[in-house]
């Protein structure tokens, strides 16, 4: 049985090297350090967007490289994003409904 094909997935172009994984791990560690630093520096208005940006970067890096989505079939990305996009939509919509819309001053 061509279980070999299974093992290495299909359409996974180049297999990343061990050194590459260590580098990714290092970047993730640095980004986390930056997050915590941003938290302690109390940057005011830019803090929240900065924190969200940093965590988004970590998220994307893990998904693309550790979970191989960058090298794998687009279909995997598709079924993942179907849920992910709706989840982001739901969180945003509820945040808007609870924390933004009532503050606009025209609510009942």
């Amino acid at each position: 049985m061509s279980s070999h094909a299974d093992a290495h997935g299909h359409g996974e172009g180049g297999h990343a090297s061990v050194g590459f994984y260590w580098a990714i791990g290092g970047i993730l560690a640095v980004l986390t350090a930056l997050e915590v630093a941003a938290y302690y520096m109390e940057l005011g208005a830019v803090e929240v967007p900065l924190l969200l940006g940093l965590s988004l970067a970590k998220f994307v890096i893990v998904v693309m490289f550790f979970m191989h989505l960058k090298f794998d079939s687009k279909l995997f990305t598709g079924v993942f994003l179907a849920g992910m996009v709706l989840a982001i939509f739901m969180v945003s919509a509820l945040m808007l409904l609870y924390h933004v819309v009532p503050g606009l001053g025209v609510g009942a």
């Binding site: 409904l97 819309v101 009532p102 606009l104 025209v106 609510g107 009942a108």
Partner: peptide, 13 residues
Amino acid sequence: SHHMFTSGLGPIA
């Protein structure tokens, strides 16, 4: 939220 018009979400929502 069209199931919730009577819950008072306000005109924007």
